[in-house]
């Protein structure tokens, strides 16, 4: 039987993969997807804790995270499209107008 430790290790590995992708890739869309990967791994940990503690609050929290993630993606992709109109590029190192 898979224990809580299994789930914690799995979700921390997935979070690590997402973090690696987030800091090492330059394509803005892949950065988004890495952020989604991290959000998902945290959701998995919440559901696992909810199951092993028999507490429904973890699942409620996960559904709130879904709503916040949907809002984040909507606004984030809108910002990305607006940036693309100016820079004609999705490489995050090209978005350097505030950098000095």
């Amino acid at each position: 039987m898979a224990t809580l430790t299994h789930y914690i290790i799995l979700s921390s590995i997935l979070f690590g993969i997402g973090a690696i992708g987030f800091v090492s890739r330059r394509n803005a869309l892949i950065l988004f997807m890495s952020a989604e990967l991290m959000l998902n791994s945290v959701n998995l940990m919440l559901v696992a804790f909810s199951y092993f503690r028999a507490d429904i609050a973890g699942q409620v929290m996960v559904i709130f995270v879904f709503a916040v993630a949907a809002a984040e993606v909507a606004v984030g992709l809108a910002i990305l499209i607006t940036l693309f109109r100016h820079v004609r590029e999705v490489d995050v190192t090209k978005f350097n107008i505030l950098k000095w």
Binding site: I8, S12, F15, G16, A19, I20, V23, S24, R25
Partner: peptide, 13 residues
Amino acid sequence: FGVLLGLCLVGLV
């Protein structure tokens, strides 16, 4: 740098 950071995170957890 990214791989190092990710491995540190996983190790910490």
